[in-house]
Structure formats: structure tokens, C-alpha cells
């Protein structure tokens, strides 16, 4: 028996992805892209990764959409009645080929929630789950890994975000975000 919820979500994500690609109006494509991110976020929650789902919902569906909207305010709508973009056969071929190559690896993936996956069998995972609370005193093992066990990584990520902002300022030739 196939669970209808993931199937419906996957259909939504697929439909939104296709709509993003083929819609002629950029505004419509951006909104379809936001809906795609929302669908992906719900899939993360279904896969019991709420931390990732939160990120996807906030960044993908929220901030990115607004940044895109700000970006297109300088553009003009092409005076055309067509709803869909005419498809470029060469581009379509490349896209189908890439999707085909990626899909060919699907068979190698373990089933969702399988106990046989390398992550579930790894000694490191067991160590984190057994000791995270005693050693770090936080109940969310994900946070324990991010902010304590692998904190050097996380500090690097935070500095990368900082560097992105500095990079923007350098490109704009300004000292403040204005």
C-alpha cells in the first residue's frame, strides 16, 4: 500500500518544478519556485528532518522569493500572450540526460528509514546518540553535533555567511548595506 501523502507531495514538487521551468512570466515562475520550496520543506518534515525543513521553508520559500522579487522589479514583462515558454530542444535534451543520469543512481539508495544505511550503522552516530546529552547538556542531538562536536565546521559556515555579506559590499563599493 502506497502512502498517499508523500505521493501527493512529490507530485506537487514535480509540478512546481516543471512550472518554474516552462512558465513564461518570470513573476509566475518565482511563485512556482516558492511553492516548490514549500513542498520540499514538507517532504523534509515527513522524512523526520525538521531542522532541514525549517531551513528550506525559511530560506527557500521565504527569503529567496523576496530576493528574486526585488531583483525582477527592474525588468519589464514581455508583451506576449503565451503562457508557456517555447522549449529549446537542445536544452531539453541536456536536462533529460542529466535527470536520467541522476535517476540511474536511485536504485543504489537504501529504502527510507532502513537500518542498513552506513549512517545508521556508524559507530560515530551511536556515540553521538549515547553521549550527546551527558556531554553537551542539550536535548537536540543535531544541535549538539553542529555546535559542539563539529563546531569548527559550523564556525566556518557562519564565517562564510559573513564573507558573503562582505563580498556584496566589496562588489557594490560601499561600506554599509544601502
Amino acid at each position: 500500500m502506497i502512502d498517499p501523502v508523500p505521493v501527493a507531495l512529490l507530485a506537487l514538487v514535480l509540478a512546481c518544478a516543471l512550472a518554474t521551468a516552462v512558465l513564461r512570466d518570470v513573476l509566475a515562475a518565482i511563485i512556482a519556485f516558492a511553492a516548490y520550496s514549500l513542498g520540499i520543506a514538507m517532504i523534509w518534515v515527513l522524512l523526520e528532518a525538521p531542522d532541514v525543513g525549517l531551513t528550506e521553508a525559511a530560506v527557500g520559500a521565504g527569503v529567496t522569493t523576496i530576493l528574486f522579487l526585488v531583483t525582477i522589479t527592474k525588468t519589464v514583462r514581455p508583451p506576449s500572450e503565451a503562457i508557456f515558454e517555447s522549449l529549446d530542444p537542445k536544452g531539453l535534451l541536456v536536462a533529460v540526460l542529466i535527470a536520467g543520469v541522476l535517476a540511474s543512481t536511485l536504485g543504489a539508495l537504501p529504502p527510507v528509514g532502513s537500518a542498513e544505511t552506513p549512517v545508521a550503522q556508524s559507530e560515530v552516530t551511536d556515540y553521538y546518540l549515547d553521549n550527546a546529552y551527558e556531554q553537551t547538556e542539550v536535548k537536540n542531538a543535531v544541535t549538539a553535533v553542529l555546535a559542539a562536536y563539529r563546531g569548527f565546521d559550523t564556525m566556518g559556515e557562519a564565517v562564510v555567511v559573513f564573507a558573503a555579506g562582505v563580498g556584496l559590499l566589496v562588489v557594490l563599493g560601499r561600506e554599509v548595506f544601502a
Partner: peptide, 13 residues
């Protein structure tokens, strides 16, 4: 974020 889903990155966004 330390005790439930989330954390600095998500909250900051």
C-alpha cells in the same frame, strides 16, 4: 534550538 528543532541559522533567517 538546543532542545528542539531549529537553531541559530533557521532562527536568524
Amino acid at each position: 534550538g538546543a532542545d528542539s528543532a531549529g537553531g541559530g541559522f533557521q532562527g536568524g533567517v
